[in-house]
Amino acid sequence: MKRPHGLAAVISILLVVVFGSNPSQAAPTPRPASVPVGSITVSAAASLTDVLPVIADAFVKKYPGTSVKFNFAGSSALVQQIIAGAPVDVLATASEPTMRTAVTAGSVGAPLLFARNSMAIATPPGNPAKIAGPWSLSRDGVLVAQCVIAVPCGTAARDLLAKNGVTVRPVTLELDVRAVLAKVMAGEVDAGIVYVTDVRAVGSKVVSVAIPSERNVMTSYPVAAVRDSANPIAAQAFVNYLRYTPSAQGILRAYGFAKPW
């Protein structure tokens, strides 16, 4: 007699716990299923290293109970990681072709463009090699670093040089744009082809040689939720936040990114 009684007590406690215990959860809230909570991991292009954590802080403030972790690298490396099953919730790349690879592989949902960027030439402080524009890069003895073609900053650098009719033999092809910037800051190269936002991010550690817009190239930043995300609600919320909120777009402008439209 004792045993069934105990069992019934346990069951009734469970029933209370599951269905009736917490009045605040039971209360009707607007679209409770879509309130983002929990942690997400965002794989993002190296050129987003400075701006995205600031946007993530604003996102977390808007949705208490969320947290955002980052994985920064060259876009194509991020895409390969996700295709290989990396536990990531959001993918933000620095070009549409790299995102297309992830879409084609069925790894991510529909992407949204959230920002654009253009190129600049970074030189060590004082611009020792007197770089004045893309044409200076082909001069003899000028050491140039750029990204490898597989990553967006490399494609953009190639397009930039082609648009200006300049042939450059770089001394190193780095795997992401921040590695190019690092070689410039170390003073090991005379110039690096990077995004305008990168030179802005590191301030006086480099000199920026601006490229007029008619001689420059633009690259677009798409963002998408990862299909296998363990937290699809928060992932999609972050994607939408990045693209649609004035707060996120304002931060992007402040870091030098252009409007996506």
Binding site: A145, V148, P170, V171, T172, L173, E174, L175, K183
Partner: peptide, 13 residues
């Protein structure tokens, strides 16, 4: 190697 010598096919890759 990649930190000190960089990455260029035929030279340092």
């Amino acid at each position: 190697t990649i930190t000190f010598a960089g990455n260029f096919p035929g030279v340092t890759q």
